[in-house]
């Protein structure tokens, strides 16, 4: 192997001892580092990796759960809104119906009242007319009675009658 080594001046042999020192110390170093440094470090790193993996899985699960809940809520909201709008529609229809009924009733009653009032007015008018006619007729009768010739006999009888009446009192 000597001829392979650059810088070998020939008078120095191959330092097999150095090789042995290197082999022994490198293997000891490997063992010591593995035991004291790499193994604990690797454990910690693996632990972190597992932690991250589990956290990611967890987050994914939570995301799916949240999505499910959101969909559920949206459906619920939609249904509630539909319910509300149908209830509102019903109420509005009911209100319209009631309104119409009330207006109709009011109209009917108003018409009736109007008719009653008209009838009353007409009756009063008729009564007044009748009164007038009666008065006219009585005046006519009185005129006729007065214009008729009262004869002597009748006059006497009338006076008698008035006197009797006055005496009777």
């Amino acid at each position: 192997m000597e001829f392979l080594i650059l810088g070998n001046t020939g008078d120095v042999g191959v330092a097999i001892g150095s090789s042995l020192v290197l082999l022994v110390s490198f293997l000891v170093l490997l063992g010591a580092l593995s035991y004291f440094v790499w193994k604990p470090l690797k454990n910690v790193m693996d632990e972190r990796e597992n932690l991250i993996h589990s956290e990611i899985d967890d987050a994914e699960n939570r995301r799916i759960e949240a999505q499910r809940l959101q969909k559920e809520n949206e459906e619920l909201l939609k249904q509630t809104q539909a319910d509300i709008s149908s209830i509102m529609e019903d109420a509005r229809a009911q209100a319209t119906k009631e309104q119409e009924t009330i207006i109709h009733d009011a109209n009917t009653r108003a018409n009736q009242l109007m008719a009653n009032a008209k009838a009353d007015v007409e009756r009063e008018k008729a009564i007044a007319e009748i009164n007038d006619q009666v008065a006219e007729l009585s005046i006519l009768i009185a005129e006729k009675m007065i214009s008729k010739e009262i004869d002597h006999q009748d006059q006497q009888q009338l006076v008698k009658q008035y006197l009797q009446e006055a005496g009777g009192k």
Binding site: G13, A15, V21, L22
Partner: peptide, 17 residues
Amino acid sequence: LPVMFDLSTSLMIIITC
């Protein structure tokens, strides 16, 4: 068998380790 140690190299190996 003569086993030769290069003392400076050996020392440096151990220091490195």
